[in-house]
Structures are given as C-alpha cells and as structure tokens.
C-alpha cells in the first residue's frame, strides 16, 4: 500500500515539476526577447498558470480532495466561488506579509503582487485542491500530528519549502553585486519556485525514508 501511494505521489509531483518546466518553456518559444530576468512577470505568470492547471487537473483526476457530502450543483458552485475568494484573499495576505517584510509599499506594487500570486499558487492552491476551502483543516494540517495521509505530509513539505525558498530568496537583495536576478522580485520568485521543486522532490523521498514512523489516523 505504501509503495503504491508513494509511487502515485511521486508521479503527481513529477507532473507538477514538469509543469514548472513547461511554464518556463512556453513563453521562451512564443514570446520574443523572453528572458527569465528581463521579462520576469511573463515567466512568473506562465509558471503560475501551468502549475495551477496541472495541480487542479491532477488532484481532480486523482480525487484526493475530501469527498463532498452533497452533490448538488449549487453546492459545488458555492465551493468553487469560495475557493476563488480564498485564493484571492491568500494573494492579498501574502502581499501584506511581503510588504511587512520590507518590500516597498507603492513602488513596484505589481511585482510584489505577482510574487504573492506565485506564492499563493504554490501553496494555497494545493491546500484548496486537497482540503477544500476549509481553513480549520488547513490549520490542522500544519501541526505535528495533523497529517492524515501521505498527501497531507507532502503538502506540509512542499508548502514549507516554497515559503522558505521565497524567504531565502530575499537574502541576496541587499548585496552590491548588481546582478539581474537581484532585482525585486526575481530572487524571491526564483527562490519560491526552487523551494517548490525541492519540496516536490523531497516529499516522496522523505516519506519513503520515514515510512516506519509515519502512522496516519484513519479518516
């Protein structure tokens, strides 16, 4: 059972990692003068879009999300709307956090918001897909005994890695090296993406390594 689950998760993660790659390649082929640093926002949104699509598709197909009790259309619609609102709120939340961390408030607000969108895509969207628009469940997942399946553990790992990656990405900004990737928010978004990829890679390995210690309560 472990093997199956881990293999399934690894392939899902591979798909997600592939989506980041595709997100970088598509604008490289279609947009003129594309470069990750120069036209950073194009890259950022294309990665966001690809990750979002793949994420939603994978989790919809796999049916990881909690089984809904009602199957009426209106219920599903309201869930969808609530998810969208939550996503937007999470973008605003990340924007606020990034500004509080020291990003300028008015100058380059678009860049800051784009970073918030990227972070939301990498973290909140997965939460939405796996746990639904249910903040209590999100809070529960991010505690030591909160994970109830391998998917929850992988969510913990990838989310943590993405946020830590973005955090680490802020480190080179004050340095006086004058590199194109030190421009706001390039290093942070690259850090977040790097962290996300690391998390995708690390989660199956970590779960496999600790499979003896991991015991999940039955849902």
């Amino acid at each position: 059972m472990w093997e199956v689950e881990i293999r399934g998760m690894a392939s899902a993660h591979a798909l997600l990692a592939g989506s980041v790659l595709v997100g970088s390649l598509v604008p490289a082929l279609s947009v003129e003068n594309f470069s990750v640093y120069g036209t950073h926002l194009v890259w950022l949104y294309s990665v966001c879009g690809c990750v979002a699509i793949v994420n939603i598709t994978v989790f919809w197909l796999l049916g990881i999300s909690p089984p809904t009790k009602k199957h009426t259309l209106s219920y599903k619609l309201s869930r969808l709307i609530r998810s969208c609102v939550y996503f937007l709120l999470s973008c605003l939340f990340f924007h606020t956090v990034v500004v509080l961390y020291g990003a300028s408030l008015l100058e380059s607000a678009l860049e800051t918001f784009s970073l918030a969108v990227l972070l939301s895509t990498l973290t909140t969207l997965r939460c939405l897909c796996m746990l639904g628009p249910n903040v209590q469940a999100w809070i529960r997942v991010f505690s030591r005994d909160g994970a109830m399946s391998v998917w929850d553990t992988s969510l913990q790992i990838t989310t943590g890695c993405s946020v830590v990656g973005a955090w680490l990405g802020a480190f080179p900004i004050p340095l006086d090296w004058d590199r194109p990737w030190q421009v706001w928010p390039v290093s942070c978004s690259l850090g977040a993406t790097g962290g996300f990829l690391t998390g995708l890679l690390a989660a199956p390995i970590w779960i496999r390594w600790h499979r003896k210690q991991l015991t999940y309560k039955l849902k």
């Binding site: 809070i139 529960r140 991010f142 505690s143 030591r144 005994d145 909160g146």
Partner: peptide
C-alpha cells in the same frame, strides 16, 4: 504562532 500551531497548542 507557527511553532505553537505545529505543536498543536494554538487551537
């Protein structure tokens, strides 16, 4: 808060 939540003490 993050650490306390991780330890399951915040809620």
């Amino acid at each position: 808060p993050l650490q306390l939540n991780w330890d399951g003490l915040l809620v």
